[in-house]
């Protein structure tokens, strides 16, 4: 796991997420192919990334967890042609974008599909591909 500010040798394996305590339920759900997000009981705002107190209102409320339907649309995207390290080369070109979930929060994630098919506004759904490092991705609907 990468410590902040440390240059781990990530060429040997895919990087593991540096899991925070706030996000433990999120990653537990990902292992069960479910997508969770938080909502504030006071302001009803959808919260992401996870935290222990709602940052969006002054209530100081503890957010609750909800399951996302995993449906959304592409807000922005970029096709990675020159990957960050050797291990990604066989995977490239791959697309990474900001996805706006229908529950009105955003995830930064891989969007599976042909690069030429990507466009802002296109509908996507969550996917949990079987990979060495379990991560939610999205794919074009």
């Amino acid at each position: 796991m990468l410590e902040q500010g440390e240059f781990a040798d990530f060429k040997e394996s895919y990087p593991q997420p540096r899991v925070t305590q706030d996000a433990l339920p999120y990653w537990e759900a990902v292992r069960n192919k479910k997508l969770l997000f938080q909502r504030c009981p006071a302001c009803s705002g959808a919260i992401f990334p996870p935290r222990s107190v709602c940052p969006m209102c002054d209530a100081g409320a503890k957010p609750g967890w909800e399951e996302s339907k995993g449906a959304g649309s592409i807000y922005s995207f970029s096709v990675v042609h020159r990957p960050p390290s050797a291990i990604w080369k066989s995977h490239a070109p791959y697309t990474i974008g900001l996805v706006r979930l229908d529950e009105d929060y955003f995830l930064f994630a891989e969007i599976e599909g042909k690069p030429e098919d990507m466009a802002v506004g296109k509908r996507v759904e969550v996917n949990f591909p079987d990979r060495e490092v379990p991560l939610p991705t999205f794919r074009l609907v």
Binding site: L2, P15, T20, P49, S78, F108
Partner: peptide, 26 residues
Amino acid sequence: ATDACPQFEFPYGPTIPTIYAQLACR
């Protein structure tokens, strides 16, 4: 490795240009 979120961004294999490209796209 340091400017991407190590939890919710870096594991997807972005480069710095990938992150900035989201703004370019928008």
